[in-house]
Design a protein around this nucleic acid. Structure first.
Lengths: 327, 327
DNA sequence: AATTGTAATGAAATCGATTGCAAAAATCTG
DNA sequence: CAGATTTTTGCAATCGATTTCATTACAATT
């Protein structure tokens, strides 16, 4: 069923049908005739032809490091919510099985003339080699702060600082860290900087002993064992993510230490698992869903309100400390 | 930059450029000339125009009840993996903020002439009112079994039966259930049927006391309290999902019962939280990622191999019982 | 009744690719 | 080397919409 066929059936010109669909001056008689034919035939306009002619594609790409992860799925959910509301489709691109394909995905999205894209920046390598710059659709980066680039990110620094202050307030003075790979600037670097800042302000000058782990619970478990082997007297542990925090708690309990009597533990993410572990794990909650919503809103601002695209918008989101039994 | 401009710059006809892009007889000299111009200008063919002309859109829609959920994100991940590999984009549609819009999404996907769609059927209302039937792009339904419909689903019945047999093997004879709403045929009905079948075969004729809960931990907690109020002597609890299982364990512990000494608990889903709770929760793991992969593969079979579309394919996936401390 | 302004109408061009077809060029026969 | 065969080539039509523009119809004004 094409627009032309509808026009013939209704005895009008194609232009009239187009005006029926998109609004334009049309006599009541013709309107009715077209309406009737369309209802009868169940005609649906070909969106591809529409998009080609108008040059506007109501699709937004979202690039993520992987899909099945709490923070990622929350950001996607937030973005989808806002985009769907505004009539845009969300097109997914995951880097999990093709880690170096940010450029390929962006090319693809440009080829489709998509309205814009949201990029969850897991690492900043692509920013350094300029993948984002020479892209002629509007982009918003999430989870990481970059100069000259629309972005929505979390206050990892202060959240980590507050968690550390909480450890100090509980009388902990020998703090150790289970960190994440440095390739992730926000998680692997920013959070540890927050810890250091809190310790520095409290007068503890040497940097805290830190072991780098790779996000998983098992790896957090091993990292904790290593920390304990080198520094058996630690009494406060900062973990960069919840799963590593849970792994660390396992190692601590296994070593005979009591939480929080002997050691306090804090982590990051507010996963629901933290409520079922014993003790419950104290964490900082980041507003991931809001992050996705805000990224989408920025995009819509650029697309719909036609606001200055060269002006870069940056949004830093807050956090919430969830104090639980582990401190 | 359009194909025509490239043709002019290279001094050839548009057809030649098209042949360069899509493969077709072309002299070496012309090939080189076009290649040079394309490399210099960074030309990317307009995919929308391509799709309009060929009538083939390399996009597949995936309809989900919500995005941020373990099982959903796993299915999406599996589907995306297979689709991306085959050169298709994954377009997301979530029903969370527009519960009744399965039809609207399908219309949208048809308007875009997408290659196909994967539908995670959270409830079967849409099947009953035929939303899926009068859709002229190929569909694959996941998570639920339907006649005359491509689908990939789990063996909820036997998984639940095996979990129940495990309870029986541990000497539990007074079994209670925390179930899910009946609007979800697989989770809310199929799993309980499995429990009943196991009990029946073991000679326990009366149906087990069952309270319906709505998936969340809090609601599982309340359901368990109610079960205990009505049947204080229960010694084995079957929960239809992990989160409800964790809620149930909380209620049991709070009532002073010891797990697994006084009561055994089993649930469904193998969430990682089950490893950090104490005791660790025994569950059945379903292969959600595989479910997504299989759904995508069925679609690709229909699209690429052009296999009989009227022939419906049905795949039932297995499961794995993860026995842990809660039994 | 003549004039002016506004609303309605459809023919034709356009978006940016692909493709059938006939003509031209190159290659292969004997 | 003429003739048959195959490979290259570009013109023009096409996919299914939108949109400009010139024209017609109609109502309002003087």
């Amino acid at each position: 069923m094409t627009l032309r066929e509808i026009a013939e059936l209704a005895g009008v010109s194609p232009s009239a049908v187009s005006r029926y669909l998109n609004g334009g001056s049309l006599s009541a008689a013709k309107y009715e005739a077209i309406d009737k034919v369309i209802k009868e035939t169940g005609y649906v306009p070909n969106q591809v032809a529409h998009d080609l002619r108008t040059g506007r594609v109501r699709q937004v790409g979202i690039l993520v490091p992987k899909i099945h992860s709490k923070s990622v799925s929350q950001v996607v959910e937030g973005a989808h919510e806002v985009l769907a509301e505004a009539g845009y489709m969300t097109v997914l691109g995951s880097l999990e099985h093709a880690p170096d394909s940010v450029g390929r995905y962006l090319d693809w999205m440009q080829a489709y003339h998509m309205a814009g894209a949201i990029v969850m920046a897991a690492n900043d390598a692509d920013v350094r080699n300029g993948t984002y710059k020479n892209c002629d659709i509007p982009l918003v980066v999430t989870g990481q702060h970059f100069k000259d680039c629309n972005c929505v990110y979390h206050d990892d620094f202060n959240a980590a600082k507050d968690l550390t202050k909480l450890l100090l307030k509980k009388g902990r003075t020998r703090i150790g860290c289970v960190s994440a790979p440095k390739t992730d600037p926000a998680v692997g670097v920013g959070r540890i900087e927050g810890v250091k800042a809190a310790l520095w302000e409290a007068g503890f000058t040497p940097a805290p002993p830190t072991v780098i782990s790779d996000f998983h619970m098992e790896s957090g478990y091993e990292a904790m064992q290593q920390l304990l082997a080198d520094h058996p007297d630690l009494d406060g542990i900062f973990c960069a993510t919840d799963s590593m925090g849970q792994g660390a708690m396992m190692a601590l309990k296994e070593s005979g230490r009591r939480i929080p009597e002997d050691v306090s533990v804090v982590a990051f993410g507010n996963d629901w698992a933290n409520q079922v572990s014993s003790p419950q794990l104290t964490t900082a909650e980041l507003y991931q869903t809001q992050c996705g919503r805000d990224a989408a809103s920025i995009l819509l601002d650029i697309l719909e309100k036609g606001s200055e695209p060269s002006y870069t918008r940056q949004i830093m989101l807050g956090y919430r400390i969830m104090e639980r039994g582990s401190v």
